[in-house]
Design a protein around this nucleic acid. Structure first.
Lengths: 231, 231
DNA sequence: CCAACACTGTAACTTTATTGACAGTTTTTA
DNA sequence: TAAAAACTGTCAATAAAGTTACAGTGTTGG
């Protein structure tokens, strides 16, 4: 499928908030790239070759140890930019980025990026909220692991997923409408799949959630918040 | 002790790299504040009332759970700014900041900060490297906790402390010249003091480090790096 | 439609770290 | 200089989570 750049930018929040001339410039110098499931956008240790805007699909930002243990740092959705840190500070990529399912990204090569920023230094300010948000997110993860037991962290993560992916269907409760196996949930929290399975089952037995194959339904949001506060 | 602002700024890297007119402006609108040991600079949840530049002493950035368990996120040394995130994104402080020992800080009130940035939007770019550095640091902490066992994380932290505080005296090895009880080391790594004591003792028994009351001497830096890589 | 694959639940066993308790040492301070 | 405070080492008991293993269920693709 060929994707029209104009179309992307019209329907996508990627460029909202940017001055019109910058948008025009971006249209001119960026490229749309199609990515197959599992394809690598960039890898830890790479030089920062450019900036990526997610247009379609989902990107997995993660970090792996030598033995293959993986930490899933975040899922990046359409409308978000990734890879800006290496462009801004010139250091290598600190994470791996992989396509989950087929994706389309808007690619801005580093030379173009540098030229743009050099011409318009006031553009730096557009990266500030992005960096602040990611910094707070990262800090909240450190905080979580260091200060809270698994049940509380899991409850918090479910609440976050609910806020982002939660939908109301005709059935009671709210469905978290995203394909996320317990394996990945475990990798997000830095624990084993079995530990997640055990905790989820406990939540289910207490009527807080309902589980089905590849599905999670939140029945009692307040109970999840309690789980988080008491700990 | 009264501290002269001019003197501070001459000897301190706080303002290096800033344009001369901005330095003048900062001199005019900032205030030097003295802080006693343990005094609070700001607390988690507070509104961002201003920007702080550490001039003298050391600031402890940390995060506490309801039950009093503390995570020591970082030690901030003279020459570093803190508190910029809340000023930049308008959200509450995400950490506590306390003086460790008597400190002096340069305080720039939020209204002055906002006015300065409004007048000179190109100043945003001075915050970019700061935010990138803190983001990478936070990510490396998450990564550490999720992917590596305690011995490797401890070894890494000792190496970081060595790089920053290491001094060569007449004795063999390198002394880490900072007052840092095992209790605080434990709070940095999110584990119990006893676990740290055990691991340090093991390192000592293997000739990697030497311990004394409130002192840590690194005898074999390479062995620490091995500890880190094999895991 | 069925075989391969992906995902989930559970259990026994081991490893790792926590907690609480206490003794001993060094430093600080009154 | 004596008493208080801070810091360290160690141990036993307990808890949390990892690991290994396997059965079972649901989904997908040829």
């Amino acid at each position: 499928m060929v994707i029209d750049k104009r179309e992307i930018l019209a329907t996508n929040p990627l460029l909202s908030g940017l001055p019109a001339d910058v948008v025009e410039e971006l249209m001119a110098v960026s490229v749309v790239k199609q990515l197959a499931d599992g394809e690598c956008v960039y890898a830890q240790g790479d030089d920062g070759d450019g900036l990526f805007g997610v247009v379609q699909g989902r990107i997995r930002l993660s970090n792996s140890s030598r033995e293959g243990k993986e930490l899933l740092v975040m899922l990046v959705e359409p409308g978000d930019w990734i890879g800006e840190v290496s462009l801004l500070d010139g250091l290598p990529r600190s994470l791996d980025a992989f396509a989950m399912g087929d994706c389309a990204v808007l690619f801005l090569p580093r030379t173009r990026f540098d030229a743009l920023l050099k011409a318009k230094p006031e553009l730096y300010q557009y990266f500030i909220p992005m960096l602040c948000r990611k910094l707070r997110l990262a800090l909240s993860y450190v905080e979580g692991v260091a200060l809270f037991p698994l049940p509380a962290r899991l409850a918090q993560r479910i609440l976050e997923l609910l806020a982002f992916y939660g939908v109301n269907d005709d059935k009671p409760g709210m469905l978290i409408d995203v394909h996320l196996p317990q394996e990945d949930l475990a990798k997000m929290l830095g624990v084993s799949r079995q530990a997640i399975s055990r905790e989820l089952k406990r939540f289910e037995s207490e009527g807080i959630i309902q589980l089905a194959y590849g599905q999670l339904r939140v029945m009692d949001e307040v109970a999840l918040q309690r789980e988080l506060e008491q700990a």
